[in-house]
């Protein structure tokens, strides 16, 4: 026995497939026709769904591409590509390279100092070479900087 198509069925159908009978499952249109013929609510529901779909169709209608859009996209691509290359070039300017080199030397000096200080606190005895290094770096035997008049 066929179940009668109800208003709730129509609502579910419209929510799932829209209001266009071409998008409905085969055979559904007859059931909808019968319902719409006997039920004003169903008729209004279908009218509303149709009107809404028409509005959505108008809103979402794709526009043609104008030549200006193509031009703007190409211009953007060229600018961003140039920007990428420029940022790479500016990364390696002589001033930046010198700054990087200076920072690297500073890091090495700091590392050597810390290494010597830690070594000094651990053993408190130096070879002659280490003492010269400490003097050059300005670190006293107690691990602090040399004061005025300090000497080896």
């Amino acid at each position: 026995m066929n179940r009668t198509f109800t208003l709730a069925d129509l609502e579910a159908l419209i929510d799932r497939c829209g209001s266009d009978p071409h998008d409905w499952p085969r055979g559904t249109a007859d059931s909808v026709n019968a319902l719409v013929a006997r039920d004003d609510h169903a008729r209004r529901l279908l009218e509303t769904a149709r009107a809404l779909d028409a509005d959505l169709g108008a809103i979402a209608a794709p526009a043609a591409t104008d030549a200006a859009l193509v031009g703007r996209v190409l211009q953007t691509v060229r600018e961003r590509q140039r920007g990428d290359m420029t940022s790479l070039a500016t990364l390696f300017t002589p001033v930046r390279m010198a700054a990087f080199a200076g920072a690297a030397v500073g890091c090495i000096a700091l590392g050597a100092t810390l290494g010597l200080v830690i070594d000094q606190t651990a053993t408190q005895s130096y070879s002659q070479g280490e003492e010269v290094a400490l003097l050059v770096l300005g670190v006293g035997e107690d691990g602090t900087g040399f004061g005025e008049g300090d000497s080896l």
């Binding site: 209001s19 266009d20 909808v32 719409v36 008729r43 149709r50 009107a51 169709g57």
Partner: peptide, 18 residues
């Protein structure tokens, strides 16, 4: 009066179905 689907809301919105 029996109303068909097309009679309810007129012809389909062909704009969305080229």
């Amino acid at each position: 009066m029996a109303a068909s689907i097309d009679a309810v809301a007129g012809p389909l919105n062909r704009q969305s179905h080229p």
